[in-house]
Design a protein around this nucleic acid. Sequence first.
DNA 1: TAGACAAATGCAAATATATAAATATATTAT
DNA 2: ATAATATATTTATATATTTGCATTTGTCTA
Lengths: 99, 99
Amino acid sequence: MHIKDLTIEQLEEAANMLKAIAHPMRIAILSYLEDGKKLTVTEIHELLKIEQSTTSHHLGILKDKGVLCSKREGKNTYYFLKHANLSNIVNCVSKCTMG
Amino acid sequence: MHIKDLTIEQLEEAANMLKAIAHPMRIAILSYLEDGKKLTVTEIHELLKIEQSTTSHHLGILKDKGVLCSKREGKNTYYFLKHANLSNIVNCVSKCTMG
DNA sequence: TAGACAAATGCAAATATATAAATATATTAT
DNA sequence: ATAATATATTTATATATTTGCATTTGTCTA
């Protein structure tokens, strides 16, 4: 199956995933979740120096659009990449901006 | 240099590129521009069956954000990928939605 | 069960985006 | 110069997104 054969629904799903990623803070979040790393909301909120609720909101968007998964452990909720190869997207677009 | 070392400006540039791509019609446009292919506005407008002005608008966004380049030849303007590896982004996200 | 900590949600204001219709500009041919 | 074709821009309306504050929900521990 080839990209050109995607239905409008599949194009929309792909667009929604990319739209979820297409935000400076959310790209930063993904960059911290490479190699199967799992981080809590608080850890990300402190790493990025943004509000807890804003962090939670961003994570919710990424989860809702199928980019991240979450797993509750006690008081904490760990977030991690749903598909390892999603790091490629961030790597690829980063490369375009870095060089 | 690693992704995590991106400045806020670079994160924003990367986000702007992804935001430009993150639209069903614009993903479809990129899928037609694989392998260095060059297409005119009219060709894309007919392939995608969307308004000419809408097509031009989408192409303008992709060009403005550094995803596409354009080259005028007579009456026609040909659009093509700025970086070949940008196809990877579309391929990657497509794979996630296809299966 | 009360208190502390972690995360998620509802809300509102500011900002950004999408679409199409109408119009404008650029290029070629007659 | 004028007409025809290809693109681009302007404009307006509708819709979506971002952010932080305040609040709520969930979980553990004393």
